[in-house]
Nucleic acid binder design. Structure first.
Length: 287
DNA sequence: CCAGTATCCTGCAGGC
DNA sequence: TGCCTGCAGGATACTG
């Protein structure tokens, strides 16, 4: 996150879910709050939502970055004079803070030039992410944001989520990934939360007791909170120049560990496709 | 409304 | 060695 003379500085790692986006948010807050944007470079392309560099270039220069916010996996970068850059990292998106002289990574779609000689760059090879401008007032009506469910680290999750899950027939794994119910859980932390709660990922919501759904809800919160804390550690230590950090610092129990022994019961972990997504789990202790 | 599937995109791993 | 295929995933459009 710090723009050293050597080059890139900060990046979001693989597959950004809530903890990773929160880590990026904190980095932007620490590094860029108050900085003025002096220019915008890039080329308009098709992304999750169309990337309109001409529009960004028309509105951003002259504005200052304020404290960024996060909603689910979305990053909202408020500016002054008011207006917001709404950003989603998709699954391969990165935001880097670098000196202007740093090498430009492939698939750098937008570069924001800052008054202090640094640059904020949006890099996203798979283009599943997005960066769009929201005029003041547009945020409340934005279709992406309006559809989002409960913010999982906010109070009230335990009161509401178990009942939402209980009302649905789909596999719990699929329900945790549904951003309309709870916003910010992705494939990795959904699998981890189910393992922590000892619940099979293919179990349907309505066939699970409220007590167990409450335990799952608490597991969702704890796995996200733990990962945020890990990211925070990484922030304090700063990222390696190539940005490889994040998941390596997190102790994953099941994701990517199929074929290996469960850390709780030694059973060999397996991997199944549930709701179209690869899901690692333990047939020994997830019931 | 709900559940399930296809789709976008590139990089990488595995097979031959 | 090199090409080809398939898979990975978040959000959303679509189908039944």
């Amino acid at each position: 996150m710090v723009a050293g003379p050597e080059g890139p500085a900060y990046v979001c790692p693989l597959m950004p879910e809530l903890p990773e986006v929160e880590t990026v948010r904190r980095a932007l807050d620490l590094e860029l709050s108050g900085r003025r944007i002096t220019g915008v470079r890039g080329r308009s392309i098709a992304m999750r939502r169309p990337l309109d560099v001409e529009q960004l270039a028309a509105v951003l220069p002259g504005r200052r970055l304020a404290a960024p916010r996060r909603r689910g996996k979305y990053l909202l970068i408020d500016l002054d004079p008011p207006g917001t850059v709404l950003n989603h990292l998709g699954m391969s998106g990165r935001l880097t803070i670098t000196d202007a002289s740093a090498p430009v990574l492939p698939h750098t779609h937008v570069t924001l030039e800052l008054e202090d000689g640094r640059e904020l760059r949006f890099v996203d090879p798979r283009r599943f992410g997005m960066m769009v401008w929201l005029d003041p007032g547009e945020e409340t009506a934005d279709p992406s944001l309006a559809a989002l469910g409960i913010e999982p680290l906010d109070p009230g999750l335990e009161d509401r989520l178990p009942h939402l899950l209980k009302a649905r027939r789909a596999p719990l794994k699929s329900l945790l990934l549904d951003q309309h119910l709870v916003a910010g859980v992705g494939n990795i932390y959904a699998a981890e939360a189910l393992w922590r709660a000892g619940i099979r990922p293919d179990r349907s919501g309505d066939r699970t007791s409220l007590d167990r759904l409450t335990a799952l809800t608490r597991a969702v919160r704890s796995v996200l909170a733990d990962a945020v804390e890990q990211g925070g550690t990484t922030i304090r230590d700063y990222a390696t120049p190539d940005g490889d950090f994040g998941y390596f610092a997190v102790h994953l129990a099941v994701y990517g560990r199929q074929g290996q022994a469960c850390r709780r019961c030694e059973t060999t972990l397996r991997s199944d496709v549930i709701g179209g997504r690869t899901t690692a789990w333990c047939p020994g202790c997830q019931r």
